[in-house]
């Protein structure tokens, strides 16, 4: 588990597109259903949430100005 959760958390922090974020977010959510106290994955969740919100906003601004 130790290796799996670090690998997942790192993928969460490397996600840079909305599609990548949504895919890894689903994976993290499923992982956390099985391992609710996994602080490594939960600590990566903050960055993922902030990144998703930043990218969604960027898309909205782009669409509004198109």
């Amino acid at each position: 588990m130790a290796e799996d959760n670090i690998e997942l958390a790192r993928r969460m922090s490397y996600a840079r597109t909305i599609e990548e974020i949504q895919a890894v977010k689903k994976e993290a959510h499923e992982w956390l259903q099985q391992h609710p106290d996994d602080l490594t994955v939960l600590s990566a969740g903050e960055g993922l949430a902030m990144m998703e919100s930043a990218l969604v906003n960027k898309e909205q601004v782009k669409r509004a100005s198109a």
Binding site: A28, H29, L39, L42, S43, G45, E46, A49, M50, S53
Partner: peptide, 19 residues
């Protein structure tokens, strides 16, 4: 709620959310 997948977050509105 427990359904969020983070410990805490600083929203872009500058609100703070904590599980």
């Amino acid at each position: 709620p427990l359904s969020v997948d983070y410990l805490g977050v600083k929203q872009w509105s500058c609100d703070i959310g904590i599980r």
